[in-house]
Design a protein around this nucleic acid. Structure first.
Lengths: 201, 201
DNA sequence: CGCGACGTTGATTTGCCTCAACGATTGTGG
DNA sequence: CCACAATCGTTGAGGCAAATCAACGTCGCG
């Protein structure tokens, strides 16, 4: 096993440890079901029309999930970085064509697990089923909080909250993507930033 | 066992069957962990400050989950009706004080399962763990779709989508709550309705 | 009956978008 | 290595969707 794989294994282990205690056997089974992949910048893991067949665990790099709305605008659903799982749950669970792009924003390294392999793991190792229950719950909670922000914060406050929560994050993606994620235009984001700059002086 | 309980049991069974095949023993264990409760109109299952300790399965009635935002407005996160599970995942999973009200909008009948009882079931019956994984995934997908609507639809289109998807639903809750759920004011909803009325003629 | 909850209507205001033009920076092929 | 194109951020003018505020009508209920 290469050094890279060995360190990946350690990272995955310390991730899963946060949620469930897997036995040696379970850990090993999970590891063996995963594929190690390098992804180029701007490469797509999923495109509209395709039916999503995997979940991805990010070892390195940064991704965005987005779709094109009726007006033809890119709309970013979420970002994902190191040690996050990502997928299109809707497409994966219902095995129907996705509307989403999942794209690498930086050269990336991921672990991929396919639906069938994952279902086999679920049947053999209930703890892994539980792990993914907990991940789904966490994912939902994050979506819920985002919804809450969108419902009660003005755009400017959303930016503050986003920057407070994702500090290291906002340097890695261009501003117009942050604007899209927060649900407003790049121009407006630019305006807010100018305003803040003046206030600080 | 009363007739009511017996019909409740049937309803629960046909619900779980949609996602996992539970053995007689598993079904029975789940059933025994649940408490049957009648809830009055306007009664609260959860209020801000309390730490959520249960999940609820609705047999009859209609609930709303909402919070009060900084400006003092009620903001409805979601509605729930017959044969839906509901809870405050954030408060329940992290065992921290909730910001939410969960309130019955009609006289209701529910099945309640407490966190400890549920965790015990998870340990004994992996299938039940799986059931709740699937529920969490479905719940996330619903939230995701709602987010998608909020990001790319204009208010009026959101109303159309909502009414198309929840027909029988919008007669059961006052309009101002629907407005809150969709993220706009009762006045604006009223205006849209007036407009549609005129267009039809 | 009278009060509170709910819906409606209209006037005014505002937050944010649209569109258009212009720097700055990065990257790429000749 | 330079020239030119893309990509990205900024600025400003004008417009629109939806909020706010205020007043009024109506229904159901204690």
């Amino acid at each position: 096993m290469s050094e890279l794989h060995s360190s990946a294994k350690t990272i995955l282990k310390s991730y899963t440890d946060r949620y469930v205690k897997l036995s040696e056997e379970e850990s090993e089974a999970l590891w063996n079901a995963l594929t190690y992949r390098k992804i180029a910048r701007k490469e797509y893991l999923l495109e509209p029309g395709q039916t999503c067949k995997s979940q991805y665990f990010i070892l390195e790099g940064c991704f965005r999930t987005y779709y094109i709305d009726q007006k033809g605008n890119e709309q970013i659903m979420h970002f994902a970085i190191e040690h996050w799982w990502m997928t299109d749950y809707d497409s994966l669970n219902n095995q129907q064509p996705s509307e989403m792009f999942i794209q690498a924003l930086e050269p990336a390294v991921i672990l991929q697990i396919d639906l069938d392999a994952l279902n086999n793991l679920f049947d053999q190792y209930p703890k892994i089923d539980r792990l993914f229950r907990i991940i789904a719950e966490k994912t939902f909670i994050a979506a819920q909080r985002r919804l809450q922000h969108m419902l009660s914060l003005r755009r400017e406050e959303m930016l503050d909250t986003f920057q407070a929560g994702s500090f290291s994050f906002s340097d890695r993606v261009p501003q117009y993507m942050i604007a899209s994620y927060l649900g407003f235009t790049p121009e407006f984001l630019s305006m807010i930033r100018a305003k803040k700059r003046n206030e600080k002086k």
